[in-house]
Design a protein around this nucleic acid. Structure first.
Ligand SMILES: [Mn+2]
Ligand SMILES: [Mn+2]
Ligand SMILES: [Zn+2]
Ligand SMILES: [Zn+2]
Lengths: 141, 141
DNA sequence: TTGCTTGTTGACAACTCTTGTTGTTAGTAT
DNA sequence: ATACTAACAACAAGAGTTGTCAACAAGCAA
């Protein structure tokens, strides 16, 4: 995801308006590697801006997604996660106990579908989710 | 997933009762490669058994899952899919237009997380979702 | 600066999928 | 056959997300 200034320019170019609410969300997402839920972004935004609505956060996240500035992930945890890292192709490690998500750079080859299974099927995207337990939840299971 | 007779035995051994509703669901799932939603199972069950409730279908699916007889998949399509194929390890091709799901046998190696990224993280399971378009939706995009 | 146009906001309702509650029915072991 | 109790159908409720809409304010032009 680009910085707040660049995003301001991009939004205006698209005819979208840059409000204090959106700038607050830009700032929250910049450099966030935690893959936050929309609800958690909402909670953090509310600290500074008590009247902001959940709908506004969803809206801004979707606008960012449409511009390719964030990716919205569904990792099967019940709510979607916002991933501002669209620069590096990567997959994810998910702790099934606490829900923490960690990036996993794509270093493995072999993720290729054999031709005979690809017949009559065009592939646009691959999502890999490794489920397990993070360091904090390792002993507690 | 095992056959209806075997499931009957297993359920009784576990103190679970085998009702006509459950047997109907057993029969619907046996050999079904379509990865049906719970709702679609419900609709098909209702054809023969008009008073069956959606809750009962969910309940039975969850019981089957607890016994390891089916897998419940969340492929990000909004509702979970029931997969009676627990015998063969495989991943999935998902058509993002019509929602069709196709099995993809695991033939690729290399799906291994480099040691340095596995540090402090134990991995229990890997899910791979290939998204694209099936033969029916290929031209229409 | 001022005013206009139009996208955005916040409050609230609605929606989808899934689970909880409850009184009743019926499967199972004896 | 009887007693025990799991499972049932019906319905309400929960979580997450989206729709509606009047009031508002960002951006732009003059
Ligand atoms: Mn990520
Ligand atoms: Mn499958
Ligand atoms: Zn954890
Ligand atoms: Zn299709």
């Amino acid at each position: 995801m680009k910085g707040t200034e660049a995003l301001t320019t991009i939004f205006r170019e698209q005819g979208l308006r840059v409000t204090p609410q959106r700038q607050a969300i830009f700032r929250l997402l910049e450099g966030d590697v935690s893959h936050p839920t929309v609800e958690s972004l909402f909670d953090r935004a509310r600290a500074d801006m008590p009247t902001i609505s959940l709908k506004t956060v969803y809206q801004t996240v979707h606008d960012l997604e449409a511009l390719g500035e964030v990716r919205v992930l569904d990792l099967g945890t019940g709510s979607v996660r916002v991933d501002p890292n669209v620069e590096d192709e990567h997959h994810h490690l998910l702790c099934t106990t606490c829900g923490r998500v960690r990036d996993l750079p794509v270093e493995f080859d072999g993720l290729i579908v054999p031709i005979r299974y690809r017949r009559d099927f065009t592939i646009d995207d691959v999502q890999v989710i490794f489920r397990g337990h993070c360091e904090h939840c390792f002993d507690r299971t």
